[in-house]
Design a protein around this nucleic acid. Structure first.
Lengths: 210, 210
DNA sequence: TGTACATCAGTGAACGCGCGTTCACTGATGTAC
DNA sequence: TGTACATCAGTGAACGCGCGTTCACTGATGTAC
């Protein structure tokens, strides 16, 4: 565990963590379609057989990375909300901006979470963090509409509308289809995303049912 | 060109078309990540070297398929609109349902168009059909807001909101994240999507600026 | 209609490549005494 | 503190595989006369 600083150690110190970081870079730069375990090992500066000591196989590495991504994704949304006004609509906008911004800042992780079937989607850690993220949006809708949206048809439509909006914008930006608002983002940054979500908010989120 | 029916012909007849159809099946069943040209040839019932006579390489095949997909995608939206009431909001809902339904019915093609970097995105045919599809949404927003949305910031936000909504819902359904409304879709079919888009329509689409 | 011949659209073998994974190994580290 | 030894975490060679692509070939088709 104690690694001599400045000396190339035979043992790495924390190769597991280094492999996850290397895998993230690999995803961002080569994309899921061209992702390879040997490429990850190369980025981490170890032989291509080294990862086997930390991950059973490639799917296990990608699953662990997806779980880390889901956790960071959740915290990115919560961090935005912590800095925003506490009223329900501002909280919704904050988590939405966090959702989209996370995707733009971490395109590889975002595509891994939502666009790939390689991570094992039933991994307990992945499920836990993904559920946390989903519940942020559900709570946003619940607070805006003052009911549990998952209990009624209209509420479910509201959740899907909220999720679809932020997920769609995130996907379009990540996929290089953001030309419609690229200039606005360039000029105004996150404020443009806030205006976008504000403008796109449907009436049912503003006029809560009794 | 004239192929004897019932007899295994040495020449295929229209292998190019058959390869595109086989590639679509390959995409739907194996996904982009596992797509292979040899798999396509096998599905089409020809040797793995045969495609080279019709497509320069794998990217060329995928590009041609993406162009076909974009054209069908456009026509799916237009067909929905032709059956809907002519008022702007009904037209928007119709094209949105067409967008989402196309994705659900053709997940492989949808992912190819929006989630892959393998098709050459500057292919003239692909660009043409993709632009046609985009313009449907722009026209929807233009008709609802009674202005050219691409000329003002707010209009661009409106276009992104409209596109993001339908694109996000489509993506979530295709990615197997549709659990929020799966039961509704099962019960009501496309009508559930109509209600979703109707409910998610922001005020700016209903109260056109002067 | 018949024949010679060019062209087209397939076949199947072969190539080199990068991949994931396995394996025997070895250097580094941690621990018992 | 020193030593023996077990365990851990790397290395590098090797495996078999499926891939895209190339190549010489050949059967089928179309055309000129």
């Amino acid at each position: 565990m104690t690694q001599k600083a400045g000396k190339a150690a035979y043992h790495h110190g924390d190769l597991r963590k280094a492999l996850l970081e290397a895998a993230e870079r690999e995803l961002d730069e080569k994309g899921i379609e061209a992702f390879s375990l040997r490429g990850v090992a190369k980025r981490a500066g170890v032989s291509h057989a080294a990862p086997a000591h930390h991950f059973k196989d490639t799917a296990a590495l990608l699953t662990a990375l997806a779980a880390v991504a889901a956790e960071r994704f959740y915290h990115a949304m919560k961090a935005r909300q912590a800095m925003a006004r506490p009223d329900p609509h501002a909280q919704f906008i904050a988590s939405g901006v966090g959702y989209i911004d996370f995707a733009v800042q971490n395109p590889g992780l975002f595509k891994l979470m939502f666009g790939s079937e390689r991570p094992k989607s039933d991994d307990p850690s992945l499920v836990e963090h993904a559920t946390n993220g989903f519940m942020v949006l559900v709570k946003d809708v619940a607070d805006m509409t003052r009911r549990n949206p998952m209990e009624v048809d209209e509420g479910r439509l509201d959740v899907m509308a909220a999720w679809g909006l932020v997920h769609g914008v995130a996907n379009l930006l990540v996929a290089g289809r953001g030309f419609v608002i690229d200039a606005l983002l360039e000029r105004d940054g996150d404020a443009a995303l806030e205006r976008l979500i504000d403008r796109a908010t449907p009436p049912s989120f503003r006029r809560p049912s009794k």
